[in-house]
Amino acid sequence: MLKVEGLTVKYGVIPAVVNVSLEVREGQIVTLLGANGAGKTTTLKAVMGVLRPAVGKIFYRGQDITSLSPSLRVRLGIALVPEGRGIFNRLTVEENLLLGAYSRSSREEIVKDLEEIYLLFPRLAERRKQIAGTLSGGEQQMLALGRGLMARPQLMLLDEPSLGLAPLVVRELYTLIEKIRDQGVTILLVEQSALVALGIADYAYVLESGNVKLFGESEVLKSLDEVKRVYLGG
C-alpha cells in the first residue's frame, strides 16, 4: 500500500534520514522503532508531505506521491496524527473533530462519521462542547486519533501516541488502535516504547541514526537478542 524507496531527508545540510526504504502492506500495523533522533518522525512527515525529501520516492497504492502537497495526500486517504497530538487547544472537542474532516465535502457523511467516532470514543462524546486544551493527556490522544479518523483515511500515520501517557492509558489506547486496524485502516506506527508497539504490530523497522538497522516480522524481531538488549530492556 505504501512504499518508501531510498528516502533521504535533510534539515538544511544535516541529513536526518538516509536512504530509508520501507513498505506497509494493506491491513497491517507496521511499526517504526528507534531512539530519539533516529529519524522516525522525519520519515512520517515525509510520507505525509510536510517535509520534502532530498532523494527518494514515495509510492501510495502504486502512485508516485513524492511531489504532492499534504492536502492532496489527505484526499488520497493518508492521515497523520502528529507527535504531541497537535490538538487545537482553544477549540472545542467537536470543532477539532470536524476539522479532521476538513478535506471532505459531504455534510451528511461527516455528521454520520462524527457519530461513529463518538461511539468508538464515548469519552469524547461526553465532552464534545469542552475546550480541547482542558482534556487529560489520554483524552487528547483519543481526540487526535478521532480527528485523524474523521478524514476517513485508508492509511494512518501515528507518531508516538503513547508519549507522556500512564501505562494503563497506553493499554486502552492500543486496544483502540487495534480496533481501528480491524475496521480496515492500515497503520504506520512510530514508537519509542518498542515493547507495546511490537505487541500489536505485524511488521517492524528499527531505525538508528537515520538508517534502517533491522526489519522483519514483529515476532521475529522480539526474539532477537539485540532488540531485547537495546529496546526491550531485557
Binding site: 505525509m48 502537497s69 489527505v74 502528529p82 490538538i87 487547544n89 478524514a151
Partner: peptide, 13 residues
Amino acid sequence: REDETAAQVLGVY
C-alpha cells in the same frame, strides 16, 4: 493559529 502543522496535515492550505 493553534497548530499550523497539524492543520496542514488535515488539508488546510
